[in-house]
Nucleic acid binder design. Sequence first.
DNA 1: GACATTCAATACGCATTTGCATTGAAATGG
DNA 2: CCATTTCAATGCAAATGCGTATTGAATGTC
Lengths: 215, 215
Amino acid sequence: MVRRRERVRPTREQTSERILEGAAASFAERGFHGATIDDIAARAGLTRGAFHSSFGSKEDLFLALYDLMSARLRDRLSAALEQVTVASGSLEAALREFSRGQLERDWYLLSTEFNLYAVRQPSVAQRLATHHRALREALISIVEESLARHGRRLTADRDKVSRLLLAIHDGNQVQSLMEPDTLDAGDLTATFAGALMHSVSAENAPATQSRAGTD
Amino acid sequence: MVRRRERVRPTREQTSERILEGAAASFAERGFHGATIDDIAARAGLTRGAFHSSFGSKEDLFLALYDLMSARLRDRLSAALEQVTVASGSLEAALREFSRGQLERDWYLLSTEFNLYAVRQPSVAQRLATHHRALREALISIVEESLARHGRRLTADRDKVSRLLLAIHDGNQVQSLMEPDTLDAGDLTATFAGALMHSVSAENAPATQSRAGTD
DNA sequence: GACATTCAATACGCATTTGCATTGAAATGG
DNA sequence: CCATTTCAATGCAAATGCGTATTGAATGTC
């Protein structure tokens, strides 16, 4: 494994990564159909030839990009929620933290493109749905942990609560992007997360337990 | 104003409407960039020539379509909420009703295209934001009315509550479209609307009033 | 060090989409 | 009725984007 010379030509992996970066930017700015292979390659400082030797078609690239972004999102969520368990930070703070992040706008644009693509093409929808399930599971398990530390437990359906939280997060993101001046991202989530969690949980007292909203 | 013959040629307005309908279908199915003028015209049973004599460009058409759909949405919301005040129906039922509607999928696809377009083009964002404000205002005023009939009033910020409701509605819609088999549209909204409204309001008793979440 | 392989750039042809200019039919007005 | 105007269809030219085949340089293999 002695390197004889400085490597001049980038590895296949490196070019793929650069193309993926260019694709993220192009898809975010122009949408799936609006983005051209030319533009994507140009953003990566390459040509269409480079693209075609790494990816078969724009669709392939798009799906590869989805996998990449999914992994990143999962990492971001994990990191944010980690703080909840470790530093005994509040769930609200974690969710707010998760909502920020400098990539917000691009992430919204990209993930929305993914969603549209999935809704229009059922086969992709399954792939996306599976990933979303995993995200919700990670989220809700941390929520339960957080509640437990306050001597409470969920009374409403696990799955629905996780969907509710994600819905609020997503909806808030859209609105904050639509009115960037008047609305602060993460605001809505942080404002209501406490009250929400309270309304879907109960004290852990082993006395009578009133069922509320359990399917 | 005596009609001498049966009118053979459709009026300009009629062709415009047909093109708008075709545009709605095409934009929903293929997205803004994906939709071609050819396809739009074909769906309306016309050719590109007809398009060009009614609209200047695809963008013009898109914005005109937005205005049309906005008006329809407002009407739909009004109709759904009307029932709350008139028949003393529950807010949950009205929201669920609003979430259903056979156009759901297409409406999601279209409105998402509008949102994307707006986020990418600030000048359009303002136009869209103004319309959203009006919608939220209509929604929240009905919510307040509904609460009042139960002897309650809002304690949290009006605007934020309306944003919350819309966020939940939108987020739920996305999720239900992503997993059409496992999730029923309107379910999430209906499940939590009651609990939510309870957590952001208080009884109208003229005693001490604890402020909660008021910005 | 010669040879095979990898990989990105270039060049080419093909298909698609668009805008404009022209044309013909249908309405309108005198 | 005839003349004018309106409006959508058609034909044409230009632009854009894609995929493949080919080329040449960098890499690794024997």
